[in-house]
């Protein structure tokens, strides 16, 4: 039993998504299992429930029915503190105070583990230097967030999510606003980090080329229901991509 629990980072059991109890996105419930160790792409047309699923994972009230098990534990049983130690997110929209420096922004990653009564660890300490070098962030550390390019900022947001030390990282449309070079830089940063420290990835995206190149597993949703869950090769071999968007 223990073994089965640990092979999936996410299991959905007869879930129904939506923001209002009387108005779910779809009529029927669905289930799926996502294996650990694979990069999972979450795809589907607009309104298919991708963001709603991601929100359900971080504890917004968007799960109407069923259960979501994260590493075998029902998400409902996670306290905010426990959730923060398991899941972190790179949001689609970057929200931050306009004058905030990269350094101070990154240090907020430690908020959940440090709490509010102890001082936050300093990102400038030697302990984090290799990490910052790997992500090529050292030159950015004392700059102001809103002066960065979207590519740089996206890498900074990724770094914050990684510094939080999660087992699972959620990426909401990670390369949406990036040019090909910035997108590739972003992905390389994540891959090089992952080579040292295993981490599960669930990313929503519209870019099927990116899905093909970078993911091992595809979770496709359509109109709030499961459309496909399986290896990426299978998804493209069976032309599921064409059926999904037709």
């Amino acid at each position: 039993m223990e073994k089965i629990k640990s092979t999936f980072f996410l299991e959905a059991n007869n879930i129904l998504l939506g923001y209002q109890k009387d108005n779910p996105i779809s009529e029927t419930t669905f289930s799926f299992q996502l294996p650990q160790g694979a990069v999972t792409a979450l795809v589907g047309p607009n309104g298919s429930g991708k963001s709603t699923l991601l929100k359900a994972l971080i504890g917004e009230n968007s799960l109407i029915e069923g259960q979501l098990f994260c590493y075998g534990i029902d998400l409902k049983n996670f306290s905010p503190r426990e959730l923060s130690n398991v899941i972190s997110i790179v949001p689609q929209e970057h929200t931050f105070p306009s004058e905030l420096k990269v350094k101070n922004f990154l240090e907020l990653a430690f908020l959940s583990r440090t709490g509010i009564f102890k001082p936050l660890p300093s990102i400038s300490s030697d302990k984090f230097r290799p990490f910052l070098e790997d992500l090529n962030l050292l030159p950015l550390i004392s700059r102001v967030l809103h002066q960065l390019s979207s590519g740089e900022r996206q890498r900074v947001f990724l770094a914050r999510a990684l510094l939080q030390g999660p087992q699972l990282i959620l990426l909401d449309e990670p390369i949406n606003h990036l040019d090909p070079k910035a997108a590739s830089n972003f992905w390389q940063s994540l891959i090089s980090f992952r080579a040292i420290q295993p981490i599960d990835i669930l990313m929503s995206t519209h870019d099927l080329g990116f899905v093909k190149d970078s993911s091992d597993w595809v979770l496709a949703l359509d109109q709030g229901r499961l459309f496909f869950s399986g290896p990426t090769d299978l998804f493209f071999r069976d032309k599921m991509n064409e059926k999904l968007f037709s």
């Binding site: 917004e60 503190r81 923060s84 949001p91 908020l111 709490g115 939080q164």
Partner: peptide, 17 residues
């Protein structure tokens, strides 16, 4: 408040409601 200033989506994963 620092956490909240990053938007609710990120704040939710910072260990508080």
């Amino acid at each position: 408040l620092d956490g909240l200033s990053l938007g609710d989506t990120v704040a939710r994963t910072l260990g508080f409601s």
